[in-house]
Simulated scan of single mutants.
Amino acid sequence: MGVTDRARQTLPPGLEIQKSSIPDAGLGVFNKGETVPVGAHFGPYQGELVDREEAMNSGYSWVIHMSGQCEKYIDAKREMHANWMRYVNCACNDGEQNLMAYQYRGEILYRCCRPINPGQELLVWYEEKYARDLGPTFDQLWNKKCSANEIIEARFQIFSCSLCTLSYTSQIYLNKHIKRCHYEEYFRHVSQRNAEGSSPLLRLWKELC
């Protein structure tokens, strides 16, 4: 730790850092070796432990769920305290992903969920259970990671949540957020208007379920 350009020096054999295939995303990680098989693991994600405010202002942070309501934040903004995983970009949607981020024994790992062929960029999404356990905190960090790549405003229509300040790149992901973070609020509204049958909230709730 503390060595200049440490993140690049930790790059495993067969992987290469070059310009990302995602417009305006900067650098990315590409497979230049043999096909990476499903089930291969990378990690753990390395960085500095920071407070919540600093994590929320960084596009290189992950949140880790501890016992009870406790959380810790790991930030890979500074290359001398990070590893190569800081360069892996977020997928634009879960259909493009070939890596899945998840928490294991207090650390963040990436698991290969689709074969990564030579020449392909490594793109990460997240495990649903990991996001569900962390609720709105995770959503805020994920949005920051995506907006750091400037892909939300540049490539997609925005779907905003009416119950908080978060926005998403598709109705599907907005629905997932609502189900995960605003379950009780939407259930209460739907229950009140259930008799109407044509309530927009009721229709949305049926989609979520």
Rank of each mutant, 00 (worst) to 15 (best):
G2N: 12
V3C: 07
V3S: 11
D5G: 01
A7M: 05
P12A: 07
P13C: 01
G14P: 07
L15A: 11
L15I: 13
I17C: 13
Q18C: 08
K19E: 15
S21Y: 03
S21L: 12
I22N: 00
P23W: 10
D24E: 02
G26V: 04
G28F: 04
G28D: 07
G28M: 06
V29N: 10
V29M: 10
F30K: 06
N31G: 06
N31I: 07
N31E: 06
N31K: 06
E34H: 08
T35F: 02
P37A: 08
P37H: 03
G39V: 10
A40L: 03
F42Y: 14
P44H: 05
L49K: 04
V50L: 08
D51C: 10
M56V: 00
M56A: 01
N57V: 00
N57L: 11
S58V: 05
Y60E: 02
S61A: 15
W62K: 01
V63A: 14
I64E: 04
H65A: 12
M66I: 00
G68D: 11
Q69V: 05
C70D: 14
I74E: 10
A76N: 02
K77E: 10
R78N: 11
E79F: 03
M80Q: 12
M80C: 11
N83I: 02
R86L: 00
V88W: 00
N93R: 08
D94I: 08
G95R: 13
Q97H: 10
Q97A: 15
L99V: 05
M100N: 10
Y102I: 09
Q103Y: 07
Y104M: 12
I108N: 09
C113S: 14
R114H: 15
R114V: 13
N117V: 05
P118N: 09
G119W: 08
G119Y: 07
Q120R: 03
V124N: 10
W125R: 00
W125L: 00
Y126A: 04
Y126I: 03
Y126S: 04
K129Y: 13
K129R: 15
L134W: 01
P136C: 05
P136S: 09
T137A: 06
D139L: 02
W142A: 08
W142S: 03
N143S: 09
C146K: 13
N149S: 15
I151F: 15
I152T: 10
E153I: 06
E153F: 11
F156M: 00
Q157R: 14
S160N: 14
L163M: 11
L163S: 08
C164G: 12
L166H: 13
Y168D: 04
T169H: 03
Y173D: 13
L174K: 12
L174Q: 05
L174A: 04
H177K: 06
H177A: 01
H177M: 03
I178V: 12
I178A: 01
H182P: 04
E184H: 13
E184K: 14
E185I: 10
Y186V: 08
Y186G: 00
F187Y: 09
H189W: 06
V190H: 07
V190I: 11
V190C: 14
S191G: 00
R193Q: 09
N194M: 07
E196M: 02
G197K: 07
P200G: 06
L202S: 08
L202F: 04
W205L: 03
E207K: 09
E207F: 06
